[in-house]
Design a binder for these strands. Structure first.
Lengths: 233, 233
DNA sequence: GCCTCTTGAATAAGTCGTATGTAATGGGTT
DNA sequence: AACCCATTACATACGACTTATTCAAGAGGC
């Protein structure tokens, strides 16, 4: 109901994933495939496929004779972008944003240092363009435009690092930034200091200044953490 | 075939996942469900469930009329422990180990710093015990015992950081360490310097010395990276 | 009499074959 | 060249059968 459908599978998966990620189903709770099939008015086949996917994310465990049991949070594949999205939509978004931001503060400085060493001319150009875009949208309530450039900026840095594990965190960072902008109502324009740091970071990468890039990214991360502390204590 | 079965689903999933992760199926290659059903001698239902799981890992994309297409590596969920295991079993293990080790070098120092601040008495006790275990197994070709303590050590640090994103990297680190020990044939005993660093790191965490813990962990990471450069150029 | 081991029945997921719906592709027609 | 239709391969669905696990009842030993 009410969702654009886009496939029964997707619909049921999203609904169940959201419920579990939101904590509506406490760990140890057992679901049964027949029940779920009835509840969502789909066949058991669809439910079974959904369960298989949730199982691959370690959100649930399916055992014969006992049913589908919800696993404790510590066992979830919390790096799965889908899981992150579900959790950010749930009730413990603040805690989640904090965890992710701490992760960023560890990874992004190192990635920026590598980017300064490995970035191609295209990377540098795109980075500078994003920085300029951030400057242009940093005043006058153009939050959506700013967000888009911010996401692109960090994605480029992660990609330019040349490390695929870093690159794949682009989606995570995008979710974090989007969550920050959309959920904790940002009335104010972005911090001018942050904008400046991004511009200087683009310069540092272009000049191949690895240490500078690392230090500047650390400052950006510290700012993000501080912002979290202020807005969501 | 010849695997202990443990469920048709698991068997087919593992086989297909390995093939794709190993690069046997180049990006863009199209698989068809009934072909796979024939090849593995299972019903299409099983194949469909497997495809759904692979799809949730972004390894493949299933579209009507065209079939199941293999996605390029850059889109895979490379943080999924299952995917990591498949890739480490494949041919580009060296590259993979390097990427993961760089990730470790970014994350673990920060995690260690946090651990020094947040570790409980239990954490410290377990950490010291692991360090002692590493010392005890560091000579005389007790590689398996050493590996076990090494994995436990890093897992405790990540858990003690109090950040769930860090904690969930425990499995990744375990895979890396296991891969290093098992695949690049280690004839020699572990580097004595590394053992010492672990002992000192346990001390630093116990004393709440965040900066020391971070610095020591960085040194451990540098050692691991150097080791990779030497053994797999 | 109490505890343990075995056995069997009940249960819920696992597997399978088949039928029907649906969308994208490619070729043929106007 | 634009449109339409047949083909194709996945999507959804259903129901029967299989298998593994659990729980409990009963037999046996202490």
């Amino acid at each position: 109901m009410t969702t654009p459908a886009q496939g029964l599978h997707t619909h049921v998966l999203d609904a169940l994933g959201l419920e579990i990620a939101a904590g509506d189903c406490p760990p140890g709770m057992v679901l049964r495939t027949d029940e779920l099939a009835q509840r969502f008015e789909v066949s058991r086949t669809v439910v079974r496929e959904v369960i298989r996917v949730l199982e691959s994310m370690h959100l649930v465990e399916s055992r014969r004779r006992v049913g589908v049991t919800v696993r404790p949070t510590e066992e979830w594949n919390v790096y799965d972008p889908q899981v992150i999205r579900w959790r950010l939509a749930g009730s413990d978004r603040p805690r989640q944003l904090r965890s992710l931001t701490v992760l960023r503060s560890a990874v992004e400085p190192v990635a920026a240092g590598l980017a300064a060493r490995h970035a191609t001319a295209e990377h540098c150009a795109a980075l500078t363009e994003c920085a300029l875009g951030m400057v242009a949208t940093s005043r006058g309530q153009q939050l959506e435009g700013y967000l888009r450039h911010d996401i692109a900026f960090h994605r480029i840095v992660l990609n330019a690092s040349g490390n695929e594990m870093f690159a794949r965190l682009g989606d995570v960072v995008a979710e974090v930034l989007a969550g920050r902008t959309h959920h904790q109502v940002m009335f104010e324009d972005p911090d001018p200091a942050a904008v400046t740091l991004h511009v200087r970071l683009a310069e540092a990468v272009r000049e191949g200044d690895a240490e500078g890039a690392e230090r500047l990214t650390k400052e950006i991360a510290v700012g993000a953490l501080h912002e979290l502390d202020v807005l969501a204590p």
